[in-house]
């Protein structure tokens, strides 16, 4: 089943910093909820393992993440797909665009995803809520990561 979601977040950092962090696998790994590993296969390709819980279904997804349409420092498209074993699969992508704003940088995202298997059968009604929560969590983490006061992250 398909799911779409969009939104924006204002980050307290200049666009170049945000762009750099968006391309840093360590930062992504720390920010993606449930991400257990994110290994670089090439500068734009990662192998990822993430643990996700949707309603009664929890699964460890193993998959591939790719960065496409890179337009530094304005945005990119991030695309991935993962198999969650008996829980099913998830695949999808997000367009990410960066804009300068007085407070720092505005990040605009547009997500399209598909889930299948047990996730769709039992978690289908919850998936939008879960996705929204994960997006909020990701950008909460990411805002912290780009904040110069947390330079260590």
């Amino acid at each position: 089943m398909a799911m779409t979601m969009n939104g924006e977040a204002v980050l307290p950092a200049p666009r170049e910093t945000v762009w750099a962090k968006l391309n840093d696998p360590e930062v992504l790994k720390a920010c993606i909820p449930g991400c257990q590993s994110l290994d670089m296969a090439s500068p734009t390709e990662f192998a990822a393992v993430a643990k996700v819980k949707v309603g009664p279904v929890s699964a460890t997804f193993k998959g591939r993440v790719q960065l496409l349409d890179l337009d530094p420092p304005n945005g990119y498209r991030i695309q991935g797909e993962g198999e969650g074993g008996v829980a099913g699969f998830a695949k999808g992508g997000a367009k990410v665009r960066l804009e300068d704003v007085p407070e720092g940088t505005k990040l605009v995202y547009d997500v399209e995803a598909q889930i299948g298997g047990k996730l769709a059968q039992l978690g289908g009604r919850l998936i939008n809520g879960v996705a929204k929560k994960m997006a909020d969590e990701f950008f909460g983490n990411f805002a912290k990561a780009v904040n110069p006061e947390n330079a260590g992250v």
Partner: peptide, 14 residues
């Protein structure tokens, strides 16, 4: 079934 062929009524919740 949704357009991708997922059965979205697969328990007594749905």
């Amino acid at each position: 079934y949704d357009a991708s062929g997922q059965l979205v009524t697969a328990s007594y919740m749905d």
